[in-house]
Nucleic acid binder design. Sequence first.
DNA 1: CGGTATCCATTTGGATACTG
DNA 2: CAGTATCCAAATGGATACCG
Lengths: 138, 138
Amino acid sequence: MSLQDTADRSNCTAMSDVLNRIGDKWSVMVVGILARHDTIRFNELKRSINGVSQRMLTLTLRNLERDGLVTRTIYPEVPPRVEYGLTQLGKTLTNPIQALWNWSAEHHGAIIDARAIYDQRETAIAAEQPRKAAYARG
Amino acid sequence: MSLQDTADRSNCTAMSDVLNRIGDKWSVMVVGILARHDTIRFNELKRSINGVSQRMLTLTLRNLERDGLVTRTIYPEVPPRVEYGLTQLGKTLTNPIQALWNWSAEHHGAIIDARAIYDQRETAIAAEQPRKAAYARG
DNA sequence: CGGTATCCATTTGGATACTG
DNA sequence: CAGTATCCAAATGGATACCG
């Protein structure tokens, strides 16, 4: 499949499905961190990711595990120890993620600039035309 | 920046920010379709994307335009004609998207399989242990 | 045609408290 | 330590109606 097949609805399912996992904020972070840690413990991972709640990290890890991207190993000790790592499948995902990561680093500045220009223009228009707020946040 | 910098919180901002745009269902679809259309009209685009509402397509396009990824050209005719296309910046994004698209095509089957195995195991465990529903959807 | 405005159900996710 | 359960506020997004 390639971008050429975009209009083929049935072929979009895979992409949609994968995006629902990759697309969320925390999944990419988790995969990114796991990519350079062989294994890592829950709280260690939590501390590495700025702003993630325990609930969301648990949910994210469960979903990644369910999709066969992440392994979860429980060591029956006291206190309990649980280690997470990437599966073979998960490791193959680091390449496209890396590509996206590189793109972000390279072009984030351009996006910030574009937003500033857009917002300034919108503000100027809004000052003259009280109408048309473009869904006014929604 | 690379995956090696994941733990550096400040460097994660760019990735997070880009993911908030790329991550959502419709943005990737829109960029994918625009990538092979030079320009395309609103309703033509809407028909190409299975299941998108007018509201969401408008919102998606506005965000992409704001981020400098998409151009919006209004032709003052009756009936009105509006054409969308990728900017130069938007075109550079098609490469990482293509990589992700290829990955999806290649590994979607493995994900589906992994889910089936995981769910079967979970169901079996749940049958014995009424407790522990792993957030029981939420 | 290409939107915008509004209403409203569903989803999402943080905060908090509790557990083996 | 590594979760789970529950509550609840905010964001998300579909449906519908209307407009230049």
